[in-house]
Design a protein around this nucleic acid. Structure first.
Lengths: 133, 133
DNA sequence: CGATTAAAGGATAAAAATTATTATTCATTT
DNA sequence: AAATGAATAATAATTTTTATCCTTTAATCG
C-alpha cells in the first residue's frame, strides 16, 4: 500500500494519522461519500468528529489533492486527483468507476461553435453495470 | 408566453398559481437554483413558504416534469424537461446554457468496451463564456 | 354555477448537512 | 527535547431540506 505522507506534505498538508487514513480509504475505495468515509473512519478513530472529515475534505479539495464527483440522484463522492477522466455509475448497485474517454473532439467543436473556452469536462454515464445486468 | 396549465395537468399536477409561476420562471431563466427560485417567487407571493418551493420541485422531479442539473462547485439548478442535451457553464459569471452534442459514439464505445449498459449521459463543460473572455 | 373532496399552500418544527469556534493535543522544525 | 503553528475533538451555530398540522383552493360532478 502506498504511503501518502510525502504526497500530503507536498500539498502543504501535515501528515496526521487521520489524513493518512483518509487517503488510504480514498485509495482503497476509489470513490466515497462523506457519510461513508465517516463510517469507515469512526472504526479506526472512535472519537473522530464529523467536522474533522469535512475540514479535511475541504482542505484537500482546495489543494487539489482530491476532487469531488457530483452524481445524478446520489450523494457527491470524492476521489484522489489523477489524470482527467470520466465516470460510469450503476443505477442499481451505485458502483462508480473511472473511464478514459477522449473528449477532445467534443471540446474543440464546442469551443469554436459556441465561442466558449472549455477548461474542464465532467461526464457521468449512468446505466446498469455488468454485474447487475 | 406559453401557458403551462395543461402540461402540469398532464403530469398529474394541479395547476396552482404558484406552480404556474414556477414553470414560467423556469422557462424564462432556463436554469435556476432553489435559492434563486425562492427569491423570485417571494416577489409575486409575499407569503410563500420555502417548503412549498421544495415540495413542488421534488414533485415535479418525480413526475419528470423538470430535471436537476448538478454543477461542479455550484448549487444544483433545475430546468424544464426537454430533449436530451448537455450543458456549458461559465466559471466567471455562472451562466449555464444547453448545448446539443451527439454522444452516441461515446455511449456505444463504453457500452461494448466496459460491458456497461448506458442509459443516460450527463455532461457539463465548464470554462469561460464569450462575454467573460 | 355551488357543493364536495382530494390535494396544495403556509407556518412552523424537526431533521440533516455543513460550517464555525475554542480549548487541547500533536506534527514538524530547530 | 522544546517551541510553535497547525490539527483534532467537542460543541455550538448555520444552512439546507423534510415533515407535520391546519387552512385554503383547484378540480370534479351534480
Amino acid at each position: 500500500m502506498k504511503n501518502y505522507t510525502d504526497t500530503l506534505r507536498s500539498h502543504n498538508l501535515k501528515a496526521t494519522p487521520q489524513r493518512l487514513a483518509i487517503t488510504d480509504i480514498l485509495y482503497a475505495h476509489g470513490h466515497i461519500s462523506i457519510e461513508s468515509l465517516y463510517d469507515v473512519m469512526i472504526k479506526k478513530f472512535s472519537s473522530i468528529s464529523l467536522a474533522t472529515i469535512y475540514k479535511n475534505i475541504n482542505l484537500m479539495l482546495e489543494n487539489s489533492f482530491i476532487q469531488e464527483v457530483k452524481l445524478p440522484n446520489q450523494k457527491t463522492v470524492y476521489e484522489l486527483t489523477k489524470h482527467s477522466h470520466s465516470h460510469i455509475m450503476c443505477d442499481r448497485c451505485g458502483m462508480v468507476n473511472d473511464i478514459t474517454i477522449d473528449l477532445n473532439a467534443i471540446v474543440n467543436t464546442v469551443s469554436t461553435l459556441e465561442n466558449f473556452e472549455v477548461s474542464k469536462a465532467d461526464l457521468v454515464l449512468s446505466g446498469v453495470c455488468k454485474n447487475c445486468a
